[in-house]
Write a protein that binds this DNA or RNA. Structure first.
Lengths: 341, 341
DNA sequence: CTGAAAGCGCTTACAG
DNA sequence: CTGAAAGCGCTTACAG
């Protein structure tokens, strides 16, 4: 389609001025006479001219475009983060491009290179907990990237990462969820999902254990199942747990890594005829759009994803080098009930 | 963070060659002696050099980056399209950036400009049906964009749009859904969601009406409610419809614009104590990840979003100027049943 | 196989 | 208020 692209030279010659002058009106500078500004704008409009942002980037060394790398967009959780970031970016005059996490996956060839080559004005990276060996490689990739553009992190960011960040305090969240359940009388509380992580004080397992300790409940390893964050994995995990235990030891409540895992657990409970919440309470995390539409509606944690994304953009633009903690709140619905005597 | 950026000149002087030679090894050209190639690569590696894609774009007039504009990412339907497009793009060596639909919304100031300025190698635009007046403005924006880069369309593309496209044949889809329901004995079939569109032969309403005609059923205007594509809107629409009708005229089946609307309808039915599927069959569209986890699991149409996204990328890259139709298939679950006598 | 030079389309001091 | 000129960091003929 694109015929010969028209350039600032075309506009300048048509308007009978220099390209410097065209550039000035393009950038809305004040020191241009009203008459020439008008003439230039008229030519721009007539020829439907759009300055090339890439030439602009070349000359001014700034592109007004940010990037965000997200693990997987198919979980709406990440779509919410993206939306929040993107809207804030637009407000500040930037565009936001999305890159898949695999861009950072150092198990592939030279992964961060593509990102580094793009000379973005800044990059947000949403990190999840990773197995430790992989983790160190990702950290290396992040440091590499940082030579080329400011980077701010989002999500489960270990304190050992010296990056500005908006981090989840997953520990306090889990601890609060356990408290919520123990106040409903639950004593056998399972926790499903996630990876077996290293020694981060903010990670979920710490909160889970603290919550149990607060209520003077034993930590029962059989109630802690690690799995990936999909519904299928959640269902399989609960299935495994229940199969491995005599029914009188079955948990009366399960905390799921996220709403997808919670959905899987609910489905598995349904298959087994275990009524929710009568015989099993379930709490999810992320408060996905579908949580209110499940049966029963799912109690979940709103992790303020859009706000988190927006805040990360602000840190990126302002250049503040600080780590903030994202807020969250428990959204009570019908999937949890007082434990039956 | 970014200190002085290192350039091709640094590498050239370090390696004792010209920048042309560095450029050659960078682009993997064959005509470089093994010795100099090795030396250059060694310097590149040591200095951790990454060529600027924007300088590259400037010089070569190609950026290897594509864009896609999507109405709203919060509906996972669009996340699936994006994922399909993005993965295909990566396979072909391109990156894919996401832009919000509002970039094209001509009710805002000079909307497509930002897109045009980016000189992408190509753009995919996912269009939905729009009220007619707005529609003509979008078409104008698309034509404008096309001066700057190839554009392919996805979604509900009216044939009057002379763009390469992967379009939904929504008419045949709706017609098939109506047939499916009439074969289950349904005669009072409602259709909820969407906008009152103009005269596109592929639009859903045409299929709905054809389906009714095939079964020699009357078109009952009270069964056709227009609304936006959210769960809330779906619930409100069904609520309005039922309120407006004596119960003996209530539909026995409802076709929803998409799964979100279907979820809203299911929730509204639940509030009214209308059992699904015993007293109301529901079919959705898009086959979202949560469809199998609703109660009952929702019958929906798989619209092959990832494939559609991937195919659009192929059309973009190959430059083929053709309109293709996206495939789809009905995924039967438990939300539809034979009508009760 | 290698290098010197022009050029991509802008912005940005610097003069005037 | 306006213009001439250099420069951003690459690629691409063109010579050799």
């Amino acid at each position: 389609m694109s015929s010969e692209n028209i350039t600032i030279y075309d506009i300048a010659s048509d308007a009978g001025v220099s390209i410097a002058t065209v550039s000035r009106v393009l950038r809305g500078e004040a020191n241009v006479s009203e008459a020439t500004r008008k003439k230039v704008l008229e030519v721009i409009d007539r020829r439907n001219y759009r300055p090339s942002s890439i030439a602009r980037g070349m000359a001014s060394k700034t592109t007004h475009s940010l990037g965000i790398v997200l693990p997987k967009l198919l979980n709406p959780h990440y779509a919410m983060i993206f939306t929040g970031a993107q809207e804030e970016a637009r407000k500040l005059g930037y565009t936001m491009s999305l890159f898949p996490w695999s861009s950072l996956d150092t198990r592939e060839y030279n992964p961060a290179a593509m990102l580094a080559e793009r000379r973005l004005d800044g990059l947000i990276v949403c990190v999840e907990y990773l197995p430790h060996d992989h983790d160190v490689q990702v950290l290396a990739a992040l440091r590499d990237l940082r030579q080329y553009m400011p980077v701010v992190l989002i999500g489960c960011v270990p304190p050992s990462y010296d990056f500005p960040a908006v981090t989840n305090n997953s520990a306090s969240m889990l601890q609060a969820i356990v408290r919520y359940l123990t106040e409903l009388g639950h004593e056998r509380i399972a926790f499903i999902g996630g990876v077996e992580e290293d020694n981060d004080p903010l990670r979920r397992d710490v909160g889970y254990e603290n919550g149990l300790r607060d209520a003077r409940l034993p930590y029962i390893a059989s109630y802690r199942i690690y799995c990936r964050g999909t519904a299928e994995d959640g269902a399989a995990a609960l299935n495994r747990m229940l199969d491995s235990l005599k029914p009188e030891y079955w948990p009366t409540a399960v905390i799921a890594l996220n709403d997808l895992v919670a959905m899987g657990c609910m489905a598995e409970a349904g298959r087994r005829g275990i009524a929710i919440p009568d015989r099993l309470s379930v709490v999810g995390c992320d408060n996905l759009f579908c949580a209110p539409y499940l049966t029963p509606p799912l109690t979940s944690v709103n992790t303020h994803q859009q706000q988190t994304g927006a805040r990360a953009v602000q840190l990126l633009i302002s250049g503040e080098d600080k780590q903030e903690t994202a807020g969250w709140d428990l959204v009570e619905r019908a999937s949890c009930a007082r434990v039956r005597p």
